[in-house]
Amino acid sequence: MLAERLRERCPSATFKTVAYAYGWAFSFAKKSKDGSGKATLSAKNGERTYGVVYELDPSELGKLDKFEGRGKGYKRDDHFIVHNQNNTKIKVITYLAEPESCDPECSPYDWYWRLCLAGAERNNLPPLQIERIRQNGYIEDPELDRKPRKDALKILEEIDDV
């Protein structure tokens, strides 16, 4: 959800709207190869999960697939329905964890959790959505030299300076 991170990967990414997915719950249940939890949505009746819709150049979709782990525990859904703030349905692309790649006991690393929280806060998602992320908690990344960790901390430092 954090524009600065997305634009590093897909420079054309342009914010469109805050939207919600009805019947979907947010969690960090997607088990990463490093053992930490990554974000995903899972079907859950009555649930409403907010996020951000970006538009990007179709030529960058392959790059986004790579970064989002398509084929490595995530599938891309090209016909995912969300609702904008006027309750209008919008068809978007999103990435959903494959059930066999999920573990509800997973927790995200501290830096990944901070990226998700920063994205929610900077996009002014509803307080309940922000609180759900905040309450999830995280674990400290034991590998201080992990490249994704370093990249994330750099982005977080840059947005804190703004």
Rank of each mutant, 00 (worst) to 15 (best):
K75C: 14
K75D: 13
K75T: 09
R76A: 02
H79S: 15
H79I: 00
H79W: 02
F80K: 00
V82H: 03
V82L: 05
H83M: 12
H83V: 01
H83E: 15
Q85L: 10
N86F: 07
N86V: 02
N87K: 14
N87L: 09
T88S: 11
K89I: 04
I90M: 15
I90L: 14
K91M: 13
K91F: 03
V92R: 02
V92H: 01
L96H: 10
L96R: 03
A97W: 02
A97T: 09
S101C: 11
S101W: 09
D103A: 12
P104G: 05
P104A: 14
P104F: 08
C106T: 11
P108L: 08
P108E: 04
D110I: 02
W111N: 06
W113H: 14
W113L: 02
R114G: 00
L115V: 10
L115S: 00
L115F: 01
C116V: 02
C116Q: 15
C116A: 10
A118Y: 10
A118K: 10
G119S: 14
A120T: 11
R122Q: 14
P126G: 06
P126M: 08
P127F: 07
P127Y: 04
P127V: 10
R132D: 13
R132V: 09
I133K: 14
R134H: 06
Q135D: 11
G137A: 07
G137S: 07
G137F: 12
G137I: 10
Y138E: 15
Y138K: 06
I139W: 14
I139S: 13
E140R: 04
E140C: 04
E140S: 05
D141H: 12
D141L: 03
P142I: 12
D145Y: 15
R146D: 10
K147Q: 12
P148S: 12
P148W: 14
R149A: 01
R149S: 01
R149Y: 02
D151H: 13
D151P: 05
D151S: 06
A152F: 03
L153M: 11
